[in-house]
Write a protein that binds this DNA or RNA. Structure first.
Lengths: 194, 194
DNA sequence: AAAGAAAGGCTAGCGGTGCTAGAATTCGGA
DNA sequence: TCCGAATTCTAGCACCGCTAGCCTTTCTTT
C-alpha cells in the first residue's frame, strides 16, 4: 500500500505543480502565453502528461480559477469584517472586488470571463466559489429592502462590479474615473439603507 | 476615371461582402467558426484577399462591431422614444440593451467583449458607437441627481447592464431570474427620481 | 496592334496551436 | 532474474493566422 500512496502523493504534487505553473505564467505573460507546450516545458514533463491530469487546457484554467475563488473570498472577507457599518461593508467589499480584478487580471479572467464549465449558481459549485459569493451576500444582505431577495440583489450588485472591471480592462471605460463610478454604483445600492 | 471608380466600387462591395459574411457566420456558428479559410471560401476568394482589405482577423471583427453599434443605437433609440416618462425610458433602454445582447450574442461579443483596438470613450470613436452611448446617456440624464455627472452615471448603468448579460451568457448567473435582476438594477438607479 | 508595365489574385508554405496514437521506457511483483 | 503493467515520451494530425512570391489579367504606351 505504501508504494501506491507514494505514487498518489507524487501525482497530486505534480498536479499542483501544473496549476501553479499555469497561474504564474498567466499572471506574468497573459493566458495567450500559456500553451500546452510552454506549460509542459515549465513543469519539465512532456505535453501528454498534462492530459493525464486534466481533460484539456480549459480544465487547467478551471483549476486555476478555483484557486482564485479561494483568494478572492479571503480578501472579500477581510474587507467586510474590517468595515464598520453596513454601508461601509458594502463599499469595502466592492472596492476589494475591483482591486482584486485590477491587481490580478489573468486570474480574474479565468474566474469570470473565460468560458469554463464550472457549475456556478448551484449547490454543486466548488466550495471556494460559494464562499466568495457568500461574502458578497453577507455584505449586501443588510442593505436589502424589505421584499427584496438578498440573493438576487447580490447577483445584481456583483454584475455591476463585474461590468465596471471588464469594460475598464478592455479599454471601453477610461480607468481614470473608476473610483467615481464605483462610488456611484455603491451609492445607488445603499440609497435608503441604514 | 470611370474605370478607376468602377474598381473602387467593386472593391468596396467586396469589403462589405466580407464583413457581412463574417457577421452571418459568427451569428450562425459563433466566432470560433469564423476562420480566415472559412471566410475566404464563403466569399469565394482566396485567403490573402482578406488581408488586402483588413489588417487581420481582429480588424474584420472590429468592422462587424461597428455595424453592430449602428444596430443597437437604432434599437435603443426606438425603445427610448416610445417610452413615456423618464423612469420608463430608462427601463425601456435597459430592456432593449439586454434583449439585444441575448438575441445577437456573437455580435454583442464583437462589440463589447472581444479585445478590439477601437477607440471608445474619446471623440475619435466611430460615430455609430458614440450614437449608441448617446442613447443611453439621454435615457440616464433625466434621472441623474443634482451634482451627479450624467456621463459617469451612464457609464455605471451601462456597466450594470453589461455585467448582467455577460455573467448570464457565460452561465455564471441563471438566465431564469434575469428580468427580476434587471428590475432591481433599474429600480436602484431610478430611486429618488421623478 | 504590339509590347511593356502595373495591379491583382492565387498557390504554397511558415510557424504556431490543442490534442493523441503508439512506441519506448521504467518499475513493482513473482 | 525476468515478466507484465503502468507510465512517459516521440512523433504526428488537423487546424490556426498570416505572408512571400509567382502568375495571370488588365491598362498604358509606343
Amino acid at each position: 500500500m505504501s508504494i501506491q500512496t507514494r505514487r498518489e502523493r507524487e501525482r497530486a504534487e505534480r498536479e499542483r505543480l501544473i496549476v501553479t505553473a499555469a497561474r504564474e505564467l498567466a499572471e506574468a505573460e497573459g493566458w495567450d502565453a500559456v500553451t500546452t507546450r510552454r506549460l509542459a516545458a515549465e513543469i519539465e514533463y512532456s505535453q501528454p502528461v498534462l492530459y493525464s491530469h486534466f481533460k484539456g487546457k480549459d480544465a487547467i484554467m478551471a483549476a486555476v480559477a478555483v484557486q482564485g475563488f479561494g483568494d478572492i473570498a479571503a480578501e472579500l472577507r477581510a474587507a467586510r469584517t474590517a468595515a464598520g457599518g453596513a454601508r461601509e461593508a458594502l463599499a469595502a467589499v466592492g472596492e476589494a472586488y475591483t482591486a482584486f480584478a485590477r491587481r490580478r487580471p489573468a486570474l480574474y479572467d479565468a474566474m469570470f470571463t473565460h468560458t469554463v464549465d464550472l457549475p456556478f449558481a448551484t449547490p454543486e459549485a466548488p466550495a471556494a466559489l460559494r464562499e466568495a459569493f457568500g461574502e458578497l451576500l453577507e455584505a449586501v444582505r443588510p442593505i436589502a429592502a424589505d421584499g427584496d431577495d438578498p440573493g438576487l440583489l447580490t447577483e445584481t450588485y456583483w454584475a455591476g462590479l463585474h461590468g465596471l472591471v471588464t469594460l475598464m480592462r478592455s479599454g471601453r471605460l477610461p480607468a481614470k474615473a473608476h473610483e467615481r463610478r464605483l462610488a456611484l454604483l455603491i451609492g445607488h445600492f445603499t440609497a435608503g439603507a441604514s
